[in-house]
Design a protein around this nucleic acid. Sequence first.
DNA 1: TAGATTGTTAATCGATTAACAATC
DNA 2: TAGATTGTTAATCGATTAACAATC
Lengths: 236, 236
Amino acid sequence: MQGPMPSDGRNPGGPARAIPDLRGNVNLPRMKPALPAATVERLPRYLRCIEQLPPSQTTISSKQLALISNLNAAGVRKDLSFLGSFGIRGVGYQVDELSTRIRRALGLTEDRAVVVVGVGNLGSALANYGGFGQRGFRIVGLYDADPAKIGRQVGGIGVRCITTLSEDAKSTEIAVAIIATPASVAQGVATLLAEAGVPSILNFAPAVLTVPDGTHLRQVDLATELQILSFYLAGG
Amino acid sequence: MQGPMPSDGRNPGGPARAIPDLRGNVNLPRMKPALPAATVERLPRYLRCIEQLPPSQTTISSKQLALISNLNAAGVRKDLSFLGSFGIRGVGYQVDELSTRIRRALGLTEDRAVVVVGVGNLGSALANYGGFGQRGFRIVGLYDADPAKIGRQVGGIGVRCITTLSEDAKSTEIAVAIIATPASVAQGVATLLAEAGVPSILNFAPAVLTVPDGTHLRQVDLATELQILSFYLAGG
DNA sequence: TAGATTGTTAATCGATTAACAATC
DNA sequence: TAGATTGTTAATCGATTAACAATC
């Protein structure tokens, strides 16, 4: 039920034997230092903040980075310490090196192919969003189930039928699929994507999805965000 | 620098004296039982899950709710215990009552007026998104700075000039403003909104914003979400 | 009654942050 | 050297979850 690989840890014909650790994770050849989940979630924010710095600024202290990212200076230093010990005491961090280390830690050094499923208002907005390319993400496909949309060009990309996605995934390595469909079909799409081998899904549809182990899922939900704000509005 | 109120806690002419607690928060007259932030973030998910239940199902156990919301059953019970002790041992929770209690806790019993600032692709998608009304949020205004857009109708709502927002905010009580502008102007818009007295801001622009104390800010960022997925793709 | 499930406790785990020695 | 700032420790805080008595 969990993919075609045998789960006994044996892999006779393959390269260097993979050894599962106590938590069942496989000890991959290229081992990364574990970053705490909370740190991973903050690294993109640091990256965005240092991108907004004037080009003349070559170093930044944890204090200033904390200020502009609305976080705590000790926390900033702790987060950055996971990327190595590269700050200069009495000075701060070299902006260039900081940027490089964050990008490397997040795996932003390679280009990632992205597809968008669902070419309604939101899907079209995503297709027209220019920010992907600069950031190492490239939209390589738009998919929809509506015959009226298939074949159209949106943001310079042709819309293809969702039924062709599995086949397309064999020739193109899709890193991330963005679901921008109605809620009613989102789970079906997620299942299709997981079966097609797409490793990461970003869901914008207003539904709680379930994906098999091994597929990464993140959910962005407008109603959820509004409801959380509502709580704090109500004096919470 | 932090607004016109004196910070010494005195408020001579006002009603019942507000007493700041040790953390500087003001002890408001209508005190709610404090919900942990993590619980607040999960309540919308529970709500969404029970909305997806078949109408024939009148009760749900913490075990089933945990299953469909991808959370832990003990955690579900703990979260719900903050809403009161209303589960039935051996049976579970009445779906109706559960829904009512979550809505009440989140302050979803009153209608909230929402405005969208920035009527590009994303802003238009939001204006056309039907899900607001059902959920107690109502879009009462669209704003843009582009003369070519002002006066147009998008999703049945007229686009007004951003410069009129402060004036409009005096006659209509805006609960939430959604920023869907380019990153370059997002901070300016946030400042304008805060000064106009808008208490909550939901930012979709790819920029890290700063708002005065007392304004609630939540940020939704596509690039951030993709970068976090990238980390886990890279074997993190 | 027997079985199921809640509500709550207590253990554990992870995240945050003040403080400070090390050092630029 | 004096001042500034890092990297790290340790205290604290908050969140998670297994376990179980209470009870439907």
